[in-house]
């Protein structure tokens, strides 16, 4: 919860197991073959410190910066949202999931990053999984996996030098 990871190595897996109300925010530059995942827990930091991926308002700029450091180009970044469930359907409270999803969408909009697809809301918990250079998927309890996006390059780019 609150972690953030980026990789540019094809075949690497970045996984957030058991997302409930949290959002697994996947970010990709398909041409550069770079992908990242933030495990967002709450919508706003309200000035409090925390791990890099914990709050939507801080996680998006941090993820973008880590992606660019790893060789991604900002204008090519795309996002996929997974999670944001309402696990407990009774009770007035405990709908952090919907607020998280709204905050992540807003922060992405401000950063000018397009959302490619979402697997968000409803009751079930999900596991978010990125296989760098291959696909982004969402998995339910018991293992049923849905592929959300295939991560092949849209055009040929020269390999980044020195790597």
């Amino acid at each position: 919860m609150g972690e953030l990871a980026v990789s540019g190595r094809a075949g690497d897996e970045i996984v957030a197991i058991g997302l409930g109300s949290c959002i697994g925010l996947a970010m990709i530059d398909r041409d550069a073959g770079v992908a990242g995942l933030a495990h967002v827990v709450l919508p706003e930091s309200q000035g409090k410190p925390g791990p890099a991926g914990k709050f939507a308002d801080l996680a998006i700029p941090e993820l973008v910066s880590k992606m660019v450091q790893a060789g991604a180009v900002k204008r090519r970044l795309e996002a996929v949202l997974i999670g944001g469930a309402r696990m407990f359907s009774v009770g007035a409270s405990m709908d952090i999931g919907a607020r998280n999803a709204a905050a992540v969408r807003e922060a992405l909009k401000q950063a000018g990053i397009r959302i490619r697809t979402e697997e968000v809301g409803g009751n079930p918990g999900r596991t978010a999984r990125i296989i760098v250079g291959s696909e982004i998927s969402s998995q339910l309890a018991g293992g049923e996996r849905t592929s959300l996006l295939t991560l092949t390059a849209t055009k040929r780019v020269p390999a980044p030098s020195g790597r």
Binding site: M1, G2, G20, L42, M94, G125
Partner: peptide, 23 residues
Amino acid sequence: MVVSDMLGSIVATVLAETVGHGD
């Protein structure tokens, strides 16, 4: 409130609620 799901999803959702901005 009763739910059947991955332990991680249930515990994380409850912790997001109780821990909030603390760490």
